[in-house]
Design a binder for these strands. Structure first.
Length: 365
DNA sequence: AAGGCGGGGGG
DNA sequence: CCCCCAGCCTT
């Protein structure tokens, strides 16, 4: 007997399914990826929705699908164009993994996205949640799709005090969903749990008074909905001081650099920059030395233009921004280019460096 | 099991 | 300010 049976025992599964799905049929939002059940569209939407709000995703989804309407279109596209379509959405490895995976589907499965848990879970970037979401929504397979919403909702309904920050806890909720899920309509059931989490059973102040499954909710019954879910404190973020340079040559072009293919902001473009040990000591010299050593470019580094703060989930950059000139001829390499502001628009930049582009336009205007 | 990996909206 | 969002990968 696994632990979820303790939670499902004496739970009115049928009535819960009915009330949940009926509410969903009536109140579900009109979202672009609900237009049909095309597995490719479902897949793209689920990747975009990882750690990202619905309202943020909508315009990206529409643009992405118009650029890459089919799995084949995405498989054959240039990675740079794909990253550009993802620019600003964050977690860029999602889309690099997605393209790797659709290429694998094109080659290994003749372009048809697999419909079994074993096969689909092997695809790059498809974890337990995404596998369950695609299988249930696109193929009607009764697999759990447990995300943050589902853990919050079910922790309240079933009164589960396990820490949802722990990896093992997700499996507990998956076991619960396997016992709760509607075999007749797994798609609606899974989406209904998430929709309920988004619209009613929200993190801070759940709208229990209008909740369609209020009568099935153990937390509401005991007035404990605000205690759930239980989640560990998150760690403090690290601070990193950096110096960056808006470098122009005599043609008025700007130097940009492509980041390495792994790690933070992989394969995105940036302005030349170096981490600095101590603020206010030798940023200008650090930049000059770095650019000379790295690319053999001799630059005259001028005044500080601005200061940029950019916060990630795990670290914070404080970037001192300088401008500089050099007489270097426009010699491009794969990861180093001299471009005009107009040409720059076709390269994918992280938001932190989009801020620099904006300043470059002001400074040189 | 823990940490890296983006960015933005809402309380 | 902090939280947290339709998570996954690597170590």
């Amino acid at each position: 007997m696994n632990r979820s049976e303790t939670y499902i025992e004496d739970f009115p599964v049928q009535g819960f399914q009915q009330d949940l799905i009926n509410w969903y049929q009536e109140h579900q939002r009109d979202l672009p990826w609900r237009l049909n059940q095309d597995p490719y569209r479902v897949w793209v939407s689920e990747i975009m929705l990882q750690q990202t709000r619905v309202d943020t995703v909508i315009p990206y989804f529409n643009r992405f699908l118009s650029l890459f309407p089919t799995l084949t279109d995405l498989a054959e596209a240039d990675e740079e164009k794909v990253l550009k379509a993802w620019e600003g959405l964050g977690y860029y490895s999602r889309v690099r993994n997605l393209q790797t995976a659709v290429r694998e589907v094109a080659e290994q499965y003749g372009g048809t996205i697999p419909d079994t848990a074993d096969e689909i879970s092997k695809l790059k970037g498809v974890g337990p949640y995404t596998a369950g979401a695609i299988l249930s929504i696109a193929y009607g397979v009764p697999e759990p799709a447990v995300d943050g919403n589902v853990m919050r909702v079910l922790s309240r309904i079933l009164l589960i005090y396990e820490d949802i920050g722990k990896a093992k806890t997700r499996m507990l909720f998956e076991d619960a969903v396997r016992k709760l899920i509607s075999k007749e309509d797994p798609s609606s059931f899974n989406q209904a749990l998430m929709e309920l989490g988004a619209l009613i059973c929200t993190p801070k102040s759940p709208a229990c008074l209008i909740c369609p499954v209020q009568e099935h909710c153990r937390a509401f019954d005991q007035g404990r909905q605000k205690e759930l879910p239980v989640k560990e404190k998150k760690i403090k973020i690290r601070h990193v001081d950096m110096a960056a340079l808006i470098l122009r040559n005599q043609e008025g072009k700007y130097l940009i650099h492509k980041r390495p293919k792994e790690g933070l902001l992989a394969n995105l473009w940036e302005f030349p920059n170096v981490p600095v040990q101590k603020r206010g000591v030798s940023e200008k010299e650090d930049l000059k030395v770095f650019i000379e050593a790295e690319w053999g470019i001799s630059a005259a580094v001028g005044d500080q233009v601005s200061n940029i703060e950019h916060v990630f989930s795990h670290l914070k950059w404080n970037i001192q921004l300088f401008e500089g000139q050099c007489s270097h001829e426009a010699m491009d390499a794969a990861d180093l280019k001299w471009v005009t502001l107009e040409e720059m628009e076709s390269y994918p930049f992280p938001v932190s460096h989009q801020k620099i582009i904006k300043l470059a336009k002001e400074v040189t205007a």
